[in-house]
Design a binder for these strands. Structure first.
Length: 903
RNA sequence: GGGCCUGUAGCUCAGCUGGUUAGAGCGCCACGUUUACACCGUGGAUGUCGGGGGUUCGAGUCCCUCCGGGCCCACCA
């Protein structure tokens, strides 16, 4: 790292220190923010400003596990917002001398990409079709036109995956250019795709290791199933939504002829009923426990059982347990060892064969009408029959119920029995659960309260992590199964590939010891048809980005990582699953810190999202306001707090960036043709030293804030100081800094010029993480190298230069100047108007301070006559203004005629 | 039903472990082109700190309670 270390300490010897002198190069006559983004992005790329120094040891590295954005649409302001937060951290750490490992990934895995490809190219995947060489899809960019499924051209899996890769590559190019324009200090040599070969190999290797250690397993079990996508769905992907339904009151029949009445919203599941269940303490049903009743219409005999999960005040207090209507049914079925009578199949329709437990003539006839029907039509059939038989009591009553949905689906989930793969995540194992909760405690969340979202989720898990999905585009489960002599797959004896052969696709690759023509044959093999959950890959981003498999040397330098930035909504998914994988594979946390950004809300306080159509495109914003301005807006919002989308805040950021350019140009203009000194020993005037003392405080506060991931506070203290610096200090020292106008430079002039140079040098470093473009631009006018590799400022040197000065001199002089301005403002005259006489009553403590800056105050206030200072008494005037300085008497002179301006 | 966050000027938000008259910026009003800046500068007005109780010499800050926003989990009979 090349930087001069913060502010150099004063030299004591006679050797001039080269680092204390800066030669001012060309400062533009007219400064502008326009074009800085493109210009500096090129310059940074060319000089490798953000290249990770892989010779650095782990202790000198700061590594970031960046969220790979989903490449299935476009980035929105929410992305710009949260990625800026991360970039501020990256830039701060880089300036502190860390080698920053800041890779970028693209999440092009999974359903969103799959669906987008279907729409964009008008195709659909049919894994049974062969690969077609040189295939071209029927459409290009048909997005939004929504091609009906029936009109989509069916293509084989390999062709489909190729299209996925083609489309995501285009998107990724666009995303990268946006990130570059925004000024993310990413090392673009380190980027990855979650569908890339490395990611696939990593996901498959990690899975096989989980399998070898017994952490991954298969089970044939009832589980939540999306009938649209026809895939199993994991707990983390659930979303409870309101769903309209009807309560139906239905009579079962006891042997003695009495009715046992239940209520249900799903009468179509009547043929799947396996028991009636009431609470063991429920007085009303005591006499029925242990007996059987007969279902209406279908005449199936079912037991009446007791279970504590039954709630007496829900419905009739006695429930119909079906295989399977909901997760409670599954629990009853399991715990009471009930038979399985499934009637729903994977497409969400009623089975196409009448099941053997339905034997009555009436039952068989009715079920015959239901065969292959949707649940909706089947319900109508059952309800009509019930009404006719008199077993429907009253009419159905409309109700609003909650149903589980796949977060990307729009039909309620059904429960279907299937063979699936799971990874243990503490959902069924108390020890592992406790260990993962402990990992949560070990992880530092910013803000802290986000930790409870983790522990709530982990504590509330009710099953292991379902990782298999019945989809096409994704990382295949890397196993095959032998097929026995009868043609039956041996699910219990998976054929495991060698790690060195990964990644593999078992649907096209052949396992060792077999030939391709044995696929699907008796005595041969079949591939596992499923792919892994997208989180099964995403949970390995630290390993993928860090080179776990491909570059162990790199991995040792970056893992466990320092920071995981992400949104609060995916703590339960991405964050948790990543913790699970690292815990199982490495016995550690994947990172030390998690920084959680809030949401961007539109002016109606609604979360911005594509589905609501209230998204603002980021590139337009960046071009209109400038990247520094948009970054300023983002950096003004604290972690974990939702922020309003506010153009006003961007305008303030733009104003700040422009002010940085202008104030810098001004400060540098005093150098003339001379070199500008940064030697603190030349700062001799009390007010100059006071300014440096104030700056030292700012440096300490900003540093402490950034160390605790509070970028907002760091920006705020720097910004507040900077505006006072411009409005008061610059005005006060202007005249002195210009000097006498001849070649001689007095000590007082040198003090002002050096103070300005030191302050500018420090302020540019303080602002660099938030305003990388404006600060780099100014830096290039007079310093060597990049400000983004300059050392983060430290207060020591500033304090040495300030000596025993304290900030009071500057604040008091500022207040005095304000009181002089108020005289003119009150008289509605130009600030150029001279004051020929003024008496100020000032607080006790300010008297010496103001006295020591008298000459500067007279100059800045254009006081041409006597300035008299007295100590203010408590009853004098309004002490709340101008720091308690009261104008006792004043007299204004004639304004000078306008000076001719040089164009 | 359980949990977390949040309610301060018209708007967006600061107010750290309780301490003098509650802050900033935007917006608003008035004035001003000053050898950096009109993408500017100077000055000004603006609040029963969601309501009500309590602890305290002292509460925007701590406790209780109610009301309003947002989010997560549970709730499918």
């Amino acid at each position: 790292m090349s930087a001069s270390a913060g502010l150099p300490t004063p030299t004591t010897g006679s050797e001039p220190d080269a680092s204390l002198v800066a030669r001012v190069g060309t400062v533009p006559d007219k400064v502008s923010l326009d074009g800085l983004e493109t210009r500096w992005d090129s310059a940074w790329t060319e000089s490798g400003t953000y290249t990770f120094d892989r010779s650095a040891s782990r202790a000198d590295v700061y590594s970031i596990d960046t969220p790979p954005p989903t490449v299935s649409g476009s980035l929105h302001v929410g992305h710009v917002f949260s990625y800026t937060h991360t970039d501020v951290v990256a830039r701060f750490q880089r300036m502190r001398g860390k080698s920053v490992f800041y890779p970028m990934g693209w999440d092009d895995n999974g359903l969103p990409t799959e669906r987008r490809v279907q729409n964009y190219y008008g195709v659909r995947c049919d894994p049974s079709l062969p690969y077609v060489e040189g295939y071209e899809p029927p459409l290009q960019g048909a997005e939004g036109k929504s091609v009906k499924a029936a009109d989509q051209q069916p293509i084989g899996r390999k062709n489909f995956v190729e299209l996925c890769e083609r489309l995501t590559a285009e998107d990724e190019k666009e995303f990268e250019s946006l990130w570059r324009y925004l000024g993310l200090s990413v090392d673009w040599q380190h980027h990855y795709q979650t569908i890339g070969r490395t990611a696939q190999a990593t996901a498959q290797t990690a899975f096989l290791r989980n399998l070898a250690r017994g952490e991954a397993y298969q089970a044939e079990a009832p589980g939540l199933w999306d009938v649209t996508f026809q895939t199993a769905v994991a707990q983390a992907e659930l979303e409870a939504r309101d769903y309209p339904g009807h309560f139906h009151t239905i009579a079962f029949h006891a042997p003695d002829g009495t009715d046992v009445v239940i209520e249900t919203t799903r009468p179509e599941l009547l043929p799947a009923c396996v028991a009636l269940i009431a609470h063991p303490d429920d007085e009303r049903y005591q006499h029925l426990f242990g007996t059987t009743v007969t279902s209406p219409l279908f005449g199936v005999e079912v037991p009446v059982l007791a279970h504590t999960m039954a709630e007496p005040d829900k419905g009739a207090g006695i429930a119909m347990c079906c295989t399977f209507g909901d997760l409670t049914d599954v629990q009853w079925w399991r715990e009471l060892q009930l038979p399985t009578r499934s009637i729903l199949v994977r497409d969400g329709r009623i089975t196409r064969e009448t099941p053997d437990w339905i034997t009555s003539e009436q039952g068989v006839a009715l079920f015959g009408e239901m065969l292959g029907k949707t649940t909706f039509s089947a319900r109508t059939a059952v309800v009509d029959a019930l009404r006719e038989s008199g077993d429907l009591h009253g009419e159905p009553v409309a109700t609003q119920r909650k149903a589980n949905f796949f977060e990307k689906g729009d039909k309620p989930l059904e429960i279907v029995t299937s063979r699936q793969w799971y990874i243990r995540n503490g959902g069924r194992d108390a020890d592992l659960n406790a260990a993962l909760l402990a990992r949560g405690d070990e992880l530092t969340f910013h803000p802290e309260f986000m930790a409870v979202r983790y522990s709530n989720w982990v504590g509330g898990l009710n099953g292991d992590w379902l990782v298999s999905r019945q989809r096409f585009f994704g990382v295949p489960i890397p196993v095959w199964f032998p097929v026995d002599a009868h043609g039956e797959p041996q699910w219990d004896a998976p054929i495991i590939p060698d790690e060195a052969s990964l990644p593999i696709d078992p649907s096209s690759d052949t396992p060792a010891g077999y030939t391709a023509d044995q696929r699907g044959q008796a005595g041969g093999f079949i591939g596992d048809p499923d792919i892994m959950d997208t989180w099964a890959t995403s949970s390995l981003t630290p390993q993928i980005a860090g080179g776990w498999l491909t570059d162990p040397d790199l991995f040792a330098r970056v893992f466990p990582m320092d920071l995981r930035p992400q949104g609060q909504d995916i703590i339960r998914t991405w964050l948790f699953s990543t913790v699970v994988r690292a815990h199982l594979e490495h016995g550690s946390l994947p990172w030390a810190n998690a920084a959680i950004s809030g949401w961007i809300l539109d002016p109606d306080r609604k979360k911005m999202s594509k589905s609501k159509g209230n998204v603002v495109t980021p590139m337009g914003l960046l071009e209109e306001h400038g990247s520094d301005a948009v970054r300023y807006w983002a950096a003004s919002a604290r972690l974990g707090t939702d922020a309003a989308f506010e153009v006003g805040q961007m305008k303030i950021g733009r104003r700040l960036a422009i002010k940085v350019l202008n104030a810098s140009k001004f400060a540098l203009s005093f150098a003339g043709d001379d070199d500008l000194s940064l030697d603190p020993s030349l700062v001799t005037e009390p007010i100059d030293r006071a300014m440096l003392a104030g700056l030292a405080d700012v440096v300490d506060k900003a540093t402490a804030a950034l160390e605790s991931y509070d970028h907002t506070r760091a920006l705020e203290v720097s910004e507040t100081f900077f505006w006072t610096f411009c409005d008061d200090y610059l005005e006060l020292v202007k005249d002195r800094a210009y000097g006498a106008g001849d070649a001689s430079v007095s000590a007082a002039t040198l003090s002002a010029r050096t103070g300005l140079a030191i302050a500018l040098d420090t302020l540019l470093r303080l602002f660099a993480p938030v305003l990388p473009f404006a600060t780099e631009e100014v830096w290039s006018w007079w310093r060597q190298g990049s400000v983004h590799h300059a050392a983060w400022p430290v207060s020591d040197g500033l304090r040495t230069a300030a000596g025993d000065a304290d900030v009071t001199v500057l604040t008091a002089a500022g207040h005095a100047l304000a009181s002089l301005r108020k005289i003119k403002s009150g008289a509605k005259v130009s600030m150029r108007t001279p004051i020929v006489l003024v008496d100020l009553a000032v607080p006790d403590a300010y008297l010496p301070a103001i006295e020591s800056a008298r000459v500067d105050i007279l100059g800045a206030g254009r006081v041409t006559g006597p300035l008299t200072l007295t100590v203010a008494s408590p009853d004098q005037g309004d002490p709340s203004v101008q720091g308690g300085i009261v104008v006792v008497r004043s007299e204004l002179g004639e304004a000078e005629p306008k000076p001719a301006r040089n164009a």
